[in-house]
Design a protein around this nucleic acid. Structure first.
Lengths: 208, 208
DNA sequence: GGGGGAGTCGTCCTTTCGGACGATGCGGCG
DNA sequence: CGCCGCATCGTCCGAAAGGACGACTCCCCC
C-alpha cells in the first residue's frame, strides 16, 4: 500500500485527488494539508511514501510549495515529493527540482498519468509530464539565460515603464549603454522588444 | 433537487467538485464537461439548473469559459452560470459578468461557500466571493482608471510582448485600431508608453 | 600575457511607436 | 432626438526603439 499526503490549498483539488486515489486499491491518502507548514507537519507525523505537493499556496501563506519540499526532503527517511501544479514556468520547474522534487506534473494531467506518477515516485523513480520534460530539455539545449546584475537593473527600470533616456539618467550612463544592455538582454531572452523581454523575464522568475 | 453541470478542463477539479456535491443530498451533478463546447452541449441535453463554469480552458480549446457562458445564457430557459476560476483579475471578472454569469467564485473558496453559491444561483440569486465583491466595489469607487474589456484585451496582449501589428492580427482589427485603443489606455492610466501602461495596470490589479 | 565577458560609448540606419488630428457606426440614456 | 462612450479605420509626422556594426577599458581566469 502506497501511503500519500496531499498538500494543496484548494479544498476542491484535495477532494478531487482523494476521490481519484480512492478508486485505486494500492494507494491510500493518509493526510491532507492546506498550507506548506501543514504539509511538513503531516509528513513528520504520518511518515508517508509520497507527498503530492502544490507549488502555489494562496497569498495567505508566505511559504511556498518549494519551501515545503525542501524541508520535507531534509527530513530523515524523507518521502518522495511529487510536485503537482498549474503552471509550467521555467522558474517553477527549476525551483521544484532544486528543492528536491522527484516529479513534476500539471493539474490538467489525465488521472491515469497522475496515478502512474505516484506509483513511479513510490518506487523511487522520477516522473515528469511530457510537457515538462521537453521544456527541461530545451532549457538544457538553450544556454541558460542568466542576466548580469547590471542587466537585471536595467530591465527592472524598463519593466517599471521608464524610457531608455530615463533609464540612462537613473543609472548615470549614456543612452547608448542602455540600448546596448537591452540588446544583450534581448538575445539572452530570445525576444526582440522591451515589453516582450519584461514578459519573458517575469515568466522565468527573473523579475517579480 | 438542484441539477448541475460541471465544466472544467482539469479532471482533478471535476472529480473534486463531484465528490463535494456528492455529500449534499439536494444537489446532483448530471454531467461534466472538459471543454467549452462540451459544456454547451451538456447544457442543451441535460437542461440543468446551474452550470459551474471554469474560465480558463487549456490551450487545446480556442474557446473560453466566457464564450461558453455567453452561449449558454443565450439558450431558451437558460440555466444560471456560476463562474469558478483561479484568478480574480479585473478582465476576467468583467468578462464573466458581461457574459451573463450570475456568480463568481475562486477555486480556493471553502466548500461551504461553494455549496451556498450553487443554492443561491439555483434560486436565481447572485453570489460573489467576498474578494470579488470588494474588488468590484473598489472598481465602482475608482471609475477614473477603468478600462473597457476590449482595452484590457489589447493590454493583455501587449503585456505578453506582442507588437501592435501582432495584436492587430490576433484581434482581427487594423493596426490603427490597436494604436487607438492604446492611446485611450495611456490617457486613462496617465502614462505614455506601452511598457509603462503594463506596469501601471499591474500595480492597479487590472492585469495579473 | 592573452582570451573573454561585462560595462561603457559611439555612429548609421530602419522599424516601430506614439501623438495629433479626423471620421464613421453603434448603442445607451436623458 | 441629441449626446457620449466605445470600437473601428485612416493619414501625417516626429520621437523612441532596435539592429548592425566598431571600439575602448576593466577584471578575472587559464
Amino acid at each position: 500500500m502506497i501511503r500519500i499526503v496531499v498538500a494543496d490549498d484548494h479544498p476542491i483539488v484535495r477532494a478531487g485527488l482523494i476521490a481519484l486515489f480512492g478508486l485505486e486499491d494500492d494507494i491510500e491518502v493518509v493526510a491532507e494539508a492546506a498550507t506548506p507548514d501543514e504539509a511538513v507537519a503531516a509528513t513528520v507525523h504520518k511518515n508517508p511514501d509520497v507527498v503530492l505537493m502544490d507549488l502555489q499556496f494562496g497569498a495567505r501563506s508566505r511559504a511556498t510549495g518549494a519551501d515545503a519540499t525542501r524541508r520535507i526532503r531534509a527530513l530523515d527517511a524523507a518521502p518522495y515529493v511529487l510536485v503537482l501544479t498549474n503552471y509550467d514556468s521555467d522558474a517553477d520547474i527549476l525551483g521544484a527540482v532544486e528543492a528536491g522534487a522527484s516529479g513534476y506534473l500539471l493539474k490538467d494531467a489525465p488521472p491515469h498519468e497522475l496515478i502512474a506518477a505516484v506509483r513511479a515516485a513510490a518506487a523511487g523513480e522520477s516522473a515528469l509530464a511530457p510537457v515538462i520534460a521537453s521544456r527541461l530539455l530545451s532549457r538544457m539545449r538553450a544556454p541558460q539565460a542568466s542576466l548580469s546584475s547590471r542587466e537585471i537593473e536595467v530591465l527592472e527600470l524598463v519593466a517599471s515603464g521608464r524610457s531608455n533616456t530615463e533609464v540612462a539618467g537613473d543609472l548615470f550612463v549614456s543612452e547608448t549603454t542602455v540600448k546596448s544592455h537591452l540588446a544583450h538582454i534581448f538575445t539572452k531572452l530570445g525576444v526582440s522588444s522591451r515589453t516582450a523581454a519584461v514578459s519573458a523575464a517575469r515568466t522565468r522568475g527573473i523579475l517579480r
